[in-house]
């Protein structure tokens, strides 16, 4: 251990390193949009929430690293006079100030920006279109209630890999007109949809990154999520909860149609047992 560290390269190297790291991170946030283009109403809110935290947390991140670099760079030499206490008041200000600041900005964010949007995602509204999504190893199946507006009940005993992938039963009268689409979710633009998620086997997670939607599919219960797709176009569903070997291949297309086209598709598409 060298006792004369005044000329140590680390006095320069560390602050430069920390500052370069800070600058690179900030630049990466500022100059590139990392998020997939947003295509749902609440998704804009989620992005707003993230932007808020980015600003607040970025401030703390930058200030902290600036201080760290400053303290290291200006620290005294080893043969400098011994440490003199800073004084209680200054220390209190330095410790309690940032603490309260961080608490306030994070709680304000979650209470006033985050929670209202969280509420939108889990709102129950009878006006919403109801669509069911079935998750199974390793595919997504969309299940629409059909003209009667009622989902046929699942008859797991009737499940068949080839003929009855959705485990419905043709003798149930609610099931007869139900639509079942394998590997593709067709949605209306501009209309709120509540997705009821069902899993046949293990945990999966229904994730449409462009919508900022993510909800686990839990066997045994229905989970629900809600969104309004804003822009017609093609998107993707990914699985965000490990579900086995082919987890990475468990994807499906999302097709957002203008409302009239969607209604027309609903009308014309023959039911599962028709």
């Amino acid at each position: 251990m060298s006792r004369r560290d005044r000329g140590s390269v680390w006095r320069f190297l560390l602050p430069v390193g920390f500052l370069a790291f800070t600058a690179a991170t900030v630049a990466a946030v500022l100059f590139k949009d990392w998020m997939p283009p947003v295509a749902s109403e609440h998704g804009k809110g989620v992005d707003g929430m993230i932007t808020y935290i980015l600003c607040a947390a970025g401030l703390i991140f930058v200030a902290g690293h600036l201080l760290l670099a400053k303290f290291i760079f200006t620290s005294g030499a080893d043969d400098a006079p011994a440490y003199k206490p800073i004084g209680n008041k200054a220390e209190m200000l330095f410790t309690i100030g940032p603490t309260i600041f961080i608490l306030l900005i994070s709680e304000i964010g979650v209470l006033f920006i985050g929670n209202p949007i969280w509420g939108q995602v889990f709102k129950e509204d009878p006006e919403d279109f109801q669509i069911e999504v079935i998750a199974k190893q390793f595919e997504w199946i969309a299940h629409y209630p059909g003209r009667d507006g009622k989902f046929g009940p699942f008859r797991m005993e009737k499940y068949d890999e080839v003929d009855n992938i959705a485990a419905l039963w043709k003798k149930d009268k609610e099931s007869r007109d139900d639509l079942v689409v394998r590997g593709k979710l067709i949605l209306p633009a501009g209309k709120a949809c509540q997705i009821r998620i069902k899993s046949f086997d293990v945990l999966h997670s229904f994730n449409i990154p462009a919508f900022r939607t993510k909800q686990d599919a839990v066997p045994g219960i229905y989970t629900k999520t809600r969104f309004v797709a804003t822009t017609p176009g093609d998107y993707e569903i990914a699985c965000a909860e490990i579900c086995g070997v082919n987890h990475y291949k468990m994807k499906a297309k999302v097709q957002v149609l203008p409302l009239e086209k969607y209604m027309k598709w609903l009308e014309e598409e023959p039911g599962f047992f028709e």
């Binding site: 251990m1 006792r3 560290d5 006095r11 303290f71 290291i72 620290s75």
Partner: peptide
């Protein structure tokens, strides 16, 4: 690290 005499 405030008013420190850092040994690196």
């Amino acid at each position: 690290l405030w008013r420190a005499r850092i040994r690196f």
